[in-house]
Design a protein around this nucleic acid. Structure first.
Lengths: 147, 147
DNA sequence: TAATTCGTAACATATATTGTTACATGAAGC
DNA sequence: GCTTCATGTAACAATATATGTTACGAATTA
């Protein structure tokens, strides 16, 4: 299974937008992400529907963040993307009659649910502002190395 | 992406084998799992390579568990299957030059690594013997309801 | 010798993500 | 008003992975 990289993509895009004055076009963002402008529109459109970004058409148009960076957590972005499946491993049959399979499902589901809860909790604790800060730190470090 | 259900499958198969006297053929296991005998051989072959089961050919042949149920954890089975990817979500670029993307990757990787650690820890705590016990409980419960 | 069963390669199918093309819609500048 | 730029979306293609299927070889037992 190919892994869903949209959360990674929108984070990348949003941070570039945060560092940039004025709106950024799908074309530009597509170059940043190494993908097609249409893919950018498709994905960013979900964030627009969630009220996190706005899009303007025509000259000098593009995408703009419309929320406070400190209030946008990874969890919220994950939700905006439609809460895609987190795990690449799962049960063979979701509602089996076989009692053996029911035991297997119960064991796996419980474990996965616990891991998912932890993951979403961590996602809720990390905001775009946190990532922007981390980026600024890396940026400063690289400049220090160069000098 | 389609989810990998092999861990679920081998657990199902192993528990049926544990409840059954003598070896079970790929044909029979395939019927239990609702799949093809070749798929069973392919997957059980990985467990054979890990020393968890043995296969005998010819008349009265089939698959047999060759390990103590109490020593076979979900973790060990996961390893026997080649430690397939656990998450359906991931980074777009694994080794980006872009500092922004590096920050994004670092944040996601840290979070996913923590969830994976928890999951594998739980996997290590659950053995086939535990699942067999759980199945026995369900079995007894259903009989009680019937009476 | 025939029947059974695993071992494995090769190929087909199903599903999901991502990429691409095409065209409509709306906004800004000339 | 017309052109240009940009998003909005549908439709389709490409890609990746898991699973399913067919075919045949090898080993074991009746």
């Amino acid at each position: 299974m190919k892994r869903d990289s949209r959360l990674s993509s929108v984070l990348h895009a949003l941070l570039h937008m945060a560092e940039h004055d004025g709106p950024m076009t799908s074309e530009t963002l597509g170059q940043c992400l190494g993908t097609n402008p249409v893919v950018v529109r498709r994905t960013m459109g979900l964030l627009r529907d969630a009220g996190l970004v706005t899009a303007e058409r025509g000259h000098a148009g593009g995408w703009r963040i419309s929320a406070d960076l400190a209030t946008v957590s990874l969890r919220r972005l994950h939700e905006a993307l439609g809460e895609p499946a987190i795990f690449a491993i799962g049960n063979r049959n979701e509602n089996p009659e076989c009692l053996v399979e029911q035991s297997v499902n119960a064991a796996l589901e419980g474990t996965f649910a616990e891991a998912e809860t932890l993951l979403l909790k961590r996602f809720a604790d990390v905001t775009l502002a946190d990532l922007a800060k981390d980026f600024a730190r890396r940026h400063a470090e690289r400049r220090a190395v160069k000098e």
